[in-house]
Design a protein around this nucleic acid. Structure first.
Lengths: 129, 129
DNA sequence: GACAAACATAACGTTAACGTCATGTTTGTC
DNA sequence: GACAAACATGACGTTAACGTTATGTTTGTC
């Protein structure tokens, strides 16, 4: 039962710094985790998952503001037909964007690799005088 | 023969502002295009292509500094007098980074897809009363 | 050759996304 | 219960990637 953890564990598990966590709290990207009494903040597994998802979305090219607008749809089930339709639309959009980006990166990767091989070839030929 | 154009045409064709062009010149991302005499800058088709390529690479998540490391590979006939061993090292780093990014995005893509299917399933079941 | 539009240069400003530093409090361990 | 490690809060700093403002010069058209 790791019911809750403090910021040290959180940052380590999510791979972020404590300043990132505080910043995200301050802009409402993640819940603040404050508890009464001692002034300590306590977090759960969900916060870890949220931070990881945020990182993924960032890599997709979304700003934190954009992420804030949609992050909940990855964690909370919308009830009702219309909200669900809306979520589905956004998810499909993200899927398409991810596909595009993956494709672009694969092309980029191929370009880089071709160049690497070109250089390696150059060194090889030079070696043999 | 559009041998050369001035900054107005350049920015329009490449879809950037003149400040972006100046900034890129200042950090050595594109040649400065200065000519003697009148103080005007003249650019060619290659500059347009360069700007577009830069934009493409930015969308993949590369910083301008990273782009500067590799942009010439897309336009120059390498060989210049560049330190090839160094370029090769940089290229290998970029290859590794690209692989990581691709992997991350594929994981993300899989998550989204699972999510989408979950929603579709929900709609399907509901359809059948 | 007058004159507006396009251009050049310089300096300061801005925004996102955190980092760093300073200082005081809580927790956990001996 | 002493004490180091972990944590909290606040204020100021930083970096990338440009934007904005101000002022003077060139170009192209009538």
């Amino acid at each position: 039962m790791k019911e809750s953890m403090r910021i040290g564990d959180l940052t380590q598990r999510a791979g972020v710094t404590h300043r990132t966590v505080r910043y995200y709290e301050s802009i409402g990207l993640i819940p603040s985790g404050e508890r009464e009494g001692n002034g300590q903040h306590y977090y759960t597994e969900e916060t870890v998952a949220r931070l990881r998802k945020i990182d993924q979305l960032k890599k997709l090219g979304l700003s934190l503001e954009e992420i804030r607008d949609i992050i909940d749809l990855y964690f909370y089930d919308q009830s009702g037909v219309q909200p669900k339709q809306k979520v589905l639309t956004i998810l499909r959009q993200h899927l398409a964007e991810a596909d595009q980006k993956i494709e672009g990166l694969q092309q980029f990767r191929a370009d880089i690799k071709a160049n690497i091989e070109r250089f390696e070839q150059w060194f090889k030929e030079r070696e043999q005088h």
